[in-house]
Design a protein around this nucleic acid. Structure first.
Lengths: 239, 239
DNA sequence: ATCATGATTAATGTATACATACCATCAATA
DNA sequence: TATTGATGGTATGTATACATTAATCATGAT
């Protein structure tokens, strides 16, 4: 593995764990000292993490750990929902190949089995995997490199991912109900795409993203659940 | 001006002008020879242009000039419209400060005066400036850093910008009609935001982006107009 | 006391030497 | 003849020395 990749992974971990505090300026040399690689891969990692949204470039040069408000998380989720809605609508309007449909339906049935089974840790872990796959496949149904790329950027933020709040969900009493609702939305979107119902597909996908909104609000209420939100270390009350 | 910035500007120009052909692989050394800067700023420029969407990273390392299909342009415009629609809806739902509203209304009236005046080169040049400003201000009305950032990325592609097809438009017989329609949409969006009509604001902003769709189709028909489309050198029939 | 100005320091920006991985070409052997 | 291996060249990856710019602090004058 290259030094650049190693540096990206290490830095990302340091940021998400809160070891590097939000707002903190990151000098290249301090990272060199900390991680033991030269400035070149460090610079590369800083650029990539800025692109990812974890860092912000300072006007005078250099980078600082970005901080987010609760409103930012909300907006990131809304943005993802909007773009996934676009993907779903395009898929419905343009039609999809039978093979693709079969593939995502299989994924859908896998999720069905999980949701109907008993809820233990393994189940939530499998759910995350299958859920990510579902969203990935759905984006693929739109058949658009441009849209795919844009969504990839939108979900790069740790709390914007479709599965960002599943861990939180697992700790909530409402978890089964939420899973059932989310799965019904999965089913509906595929049905809408199959029937070429663009508006329905879009609306459902948008609403689906609001499951994350709800989980966010619930998580912010329960102190225990807060710490399960990925990237929570970056959240500040204001700004 | 830094060497990195100079390299980015030079490379972008070479790519958009078609001097570097779509699909062509760019080795760092060849650029070093061509532009007379060292590998370090060249590498930085390559990373930034990949982020911008003009280059694609090859699996084996290195970069190639990206190429686009007509469908890609279409999707890029649709993506921008969707995100600007999101911004308009959020602005309407959340409300905007009177100062902001006054500012964009002033911009709107400036556009009014231009559209009603006679259409010469200077007018189209001013139109591009004011139109960019209008879109910029509108995005600001949403008051969301996350949404702003996402839109900035979406319009980075040369043909995705709100003003990408204005030059084309100027060369078309339908240009006055198109300008009038576009301006009516501008007016309607602001009115909708002012009246807190989220759905209307979103729908109008989406439809507004389809002015670019129409201009694209018209441009592709007229051979003379084709060359006025920014980034046309990157367009290939397939892929 | 405050502001300005200079020196000092520390940061990023740049160039380049060196390491390494990949690819193509050619030769040798099965 | 085909396939495999060795070998060279060319690319990117990395480290680091050097240049340049920006921030900071101290010192002086107003």
């Amino acid at each position: 593995m290259s030094q650049s990749i190693k540096t990206i992974l290490s830095l990302r971990e340091l940021i998400l764990s809160g070891e590097l505090k939000a707002g903190e300026r990151l000098s290249e040399l301090s990272i060199v000292d900390r991680l033991g690689v030269s400035r070149t891969p460090v610079r590369m990692a800083l650029v990539r993490l800025e692109e990812e949204g974890l860092l912000e470039a300072l006007p005078s040069g250099g980078y600082a750990v970005r901080h987010f408000s609760e409103a930012d998380i909300f907006d990131a989720i809304e943005t993802r929902g909007t773009l996934e809605g676009l993907a779903a609508r395009l898929a419905a309007e343009r039609g999809v190949r039978p093979g693709q449909l079969a593939e995502i339906k299989e994924c859908l049935h896998g999720l069905d089995r999980l949701v109907q089974g008993k809820q233990d840790e393994e189940m939530f872990s499998d759910y995350v995997t299958l859920n990510e796959r579902f969203h990935q496949l759905l984006i693929g149904l739109a058949g658009s490199r441009v849209v795919t790329r844009q969504i990839e950027r939108a979900v790069a933020l740790p709390f914007a991912s479709p599965s960002a709040f599943v861990e939180v969900q697992a700790a909530l009493p409402e978890s089964r109900a939420i899973l059932l609702v989310a799965q019904e939305q999965h089913r509906g979107v595929i049905e809408a795409i199959e029937h070429r119902e663009g508006a329905r597909a879009e609306a459902l996908m948008r609403e689906h993203s609001r499951v994350a909104h709800r989980n966010l609000v619930l998580a912010l209420g329960h102190q225990a659940a807060r710490d399960l939100v990925p990237g929570m270390a970056l959240i500040r009350k204001s700004a």
